[in-house]
Design a protein around this nucleic acid. Structure first.
Lengths: 197, 197
DNA sequence: CACGCTATGTATAAACT
DNA sequence: TAGTTTATACATAGCGT
């Protein structure tokens, strides 16, 4: 339809492409409009040209047509999804506030607003908690003591060995040939000095 | 473009409308396709016929075109908004978990995993809390006692008045003409019996 | 680049099958 | 109701301004 038939493939000449785009876009929108009127159809056309500019046509409200499209075919119903998430969000936030309050409560910072009964209950809970903590502390301290003791024992053993070696060495006067018994403290870092830096 | 010119207005004959719809829809989609190819454009066409059936054409991915449309013009960028909300949601949930943990912590329920230092700190906090609670309890109890005392005082006063009245009444022997001094306990419920039920 | 023109190819209304 | 045909209206490629 024009002076000559054209092949349907990308028009490489930019100016030509722009012109054709304008003409055909107008034609497309006109056809869309006619279809919507003649056949009582709801029509939406969205076009981005090669430079990314947007052109659109809608026989009624674009928003409504797109909503309808979304609910009709596949895609997410974002509005609904958004609502649901907002709901969950609010719940979570409320739970959060409650937790903050509870922490204030158990730390006795809201004591002024509590009834005697609640105060008793809270006091009981705090005592239970403190007892747990004390018990655990005792346990930990005991464990630490045991660890220290065994360390001391180990060191004592090493001292004894060292003394024995010294005695032997003095007797034989062979300091440089009998190595001391091996024991060492585990280095917490690689020994850089002996690595040649 | 046909045997006769037609006016652009709704085709009332249903069959005719259907036929025209099919033909023109095909034509519209063809034009859309040609435009997209010739001019390297991104084209989407959405059509609902008069019975609500959906037909669509997209030169690339309909989803992508609609996203692009949404971000280019007006409406929400739901994807982005969704991402952001999801992010906030995750933060809130994390905070929530932390709060749960903290409650367990201050109630001494995680004592087993704490260092001696932490245990000391926690013990100190629990003592502070317990002290607050005890102080408040003391205050409340004192207040209650004062309230009870004043109530007792009030009752004693009333007793004295009553005795005085009795003494007077006996002296004058006019029980039925001198009313007793007015005082009453506030009823916590309306007195149903005297209301005639 | 934004028009207007016009020869020509297309789309399609109506008729037919 | 669906495909085919055909006469016609319409859209538009190439060109000029």
């Amino acid at each position: 339809m024009g002076r000559g038939k054209i092949e349907i493939k990308k028009i490489e000449n930019t100016t030509n492409r722009q012109v054709t785009f304008s003409k055909r876009r107008a034609g497309l929108f006109k056809k869309a409009r006619e279809l919507s009127i003649l056949c009582a159809a709801d029509v939406a056309v969205i076009v981005f040209n090669s430079t990314g500019r947007l052109f659109d046509f809608a026989s009624s409200s674009m928003k409504r047509i797109l909503e309808r499209y979304r609910s009709a075919c596949g895609g997410h119903d974002w509005n609904n999804e958004h609502e649901q998430m907002l709901c969950q969000f609010r719940n979570l936030r409320k739970e959060n506030e409650d937790l903050h309050r509870e922490i204030r409560y158990v730390m006795g910072e809201d004591a002024d607003s509590l009834s005697p009964k609640q105060l008793d209950y809270l006091e009981g809970n705090l005592e239970i908690a403190a007892k747990k903590v004390r018990e655990r502390k005792t346990e930990v301290l005991k464990y630490e003591r045991r660890k220290t003791e065994s360390k001391v024992n180990g060191l004592e053993q090493k001292c004894i060995l060292l003394k024995q070696w010294l005695a032997t060495a003095e007797n034989l006067e062979e300091y440089d040939q009998t190595p001391p018994p091996t024991f060492r403290v585990q280095p917490s870092q690689p020994n850089l000095q002996s690595a040649g830096y």
